[in-house]
Amino acid sequence: MRIFTTILDTVTQRLVSDPFHHDPASLSRIRRAMLDLLPNDTSWEDERLRHRLLVAVDPKSLWFMRVELHQRLCRSMGEEAALDSVQALWPLFEDTIEPALLGKRPGRRGSGLRGDTPPRR
């Protein structure tokens, strides 16, 4: 019975643990780039988003906050410019989050472009 508990604990730990170790410098670079995109508005919504960006604990949470950032930027600069600004952040996330989130599939050749990857120019 003890061996099954040990095996279950090992499997659970591997499934739950994050395979990427977060470099504080890269987290800081991503955070700074996202904060720099925010307009200098003092509205409650902007301050709330700014606070959420500041307290994010890992690049993965910042990755998911891109949607909120995009929505905010759409109001101030238009959809196309906002999309370009948010997509410019994409290279900062490489090697900090899982390739699947970036739209890449490990072990496949060619471009694994999907919706989250920036278009080729």
Results as ranks from 00 to 15, higher is better:
N40Y: 06
L73S: 05
R72T: 04
G115V: 14
R31A: 03
T5K: 15
L101N: 06
R105Q: 09
E79F: 06
L92N: 04
T42F: 01
L113H: 11
S26D: 11
W90H: 15
D116I: 05
A100Q: 03
H21P: 00
S43I: 03
L8F: 13
E68S: 14
M34F: 04
L83E: 13
W44N: 14
H70M: 11
S111I: 12
K60R: 12
L62G: 04
M77C: 05
I3S: 15
L53I: 10
S61W: 02
D36A: 14
P119M: 10
E98P: 00
H22P: 01
I3Q: 15
H70P: 00
R105P: 00
S85A: 15
E80G: 02
I7T: 12
V67I: 05
M1I: 03
S17G: 00
I30Q: 10
A81N: 10
R75P: 00
R121C: 02
Q87F: 14
I30M: 11
W90G: 09
D116P: 15
P99E: 04
S61L: 06
T6E: 15
L113E: 13
D9S: 13
S111D: 09
G115H: 10
R2Y: 09
T6M: 13
L37Q: 05
R114L: 12
L92S: 06
P118N: 06
T42R: 07
M34W: 02
W44S: 14
P39M: 02
C74T: 01
S43F: 01
I97P: 01
H70E: 13
V86W: 05
G112V: 10
Q71G: 10
S43K: 03
M77I: 07
L83G: 01
A82Y: 06
D18M: 01
V55H: 01
V86A: 07
S28A: 13
M77D: 00
R108H: 09
P39T: 10
L83A: 10
R50W: 07
P24H: 06
E68Y: 05
L83Q: 13
R2L: 15
P19V: 07
E68V: 00
S28R: 10
P99D: 09
Q13F: 05
R14A: 09
R2N: 11
S43E: 02
I3T: 13
M77Q: 08
R32F: 04
R50F: 12
F64Y: 14
M34Y: 04
H21V: 11
R29P: 01
R120P: 02
S76Y: 08
L73C: 08
T6Q: 14
S28K: 08
S111K: 12
S17R: 03
E94I: 11
P19L: 03
